[in-house]
């Protein structure tokens, strides 16, 4: 459970900070909000870019471990 939620919670907290920072302070707050709200945008765009379909029928080994139910945590982007 912890493994599933740690990144979503971090992104949520950073986004919240970004939404509020620009509202309460000018200058530094604006910069904070740009960086903070850039985080979900960067992760989302990266996911979209990496998530394009790949057709690599000759490398069936690459697909195999993903089908297995063994937990694997890395490969975040």
């Amino acid at each position: 459970m912890m493994r599933i939620w740690v990144w979503p919670v971090i992104v949520a907290l950073v986004s919240t900070a970004g939404l509020i920072a620009g509202l309460v302070s000018e200058g530094l707050g604006d910069w904070l909000s740009w960086f903070a709200l850039g985080v979900p945008v960067a992760i989302g765009c990266h996911g979209l870019a990496r998530g394009r379909a790949v057709k690599r029928p000759q490398r069936s080994v690459a697909a195999k471990p993903l089908d297995a139910s063994a937990p694997h945590t890395t490969d975040r982007g």
Binding site: M1, I4, W7, H46, R50, G51, A63, R76
Partner: peptide
């Protein structure tokens, strides 16, 4: 959560 049980964060099964 139930959909992500077997996946890492931001993992996309693109193949």
């Amino acid at each position: 959560a139930p959909f992500m049980r077997k996946l890492g964060f931001a993992e996309v099964r693109r193949e």
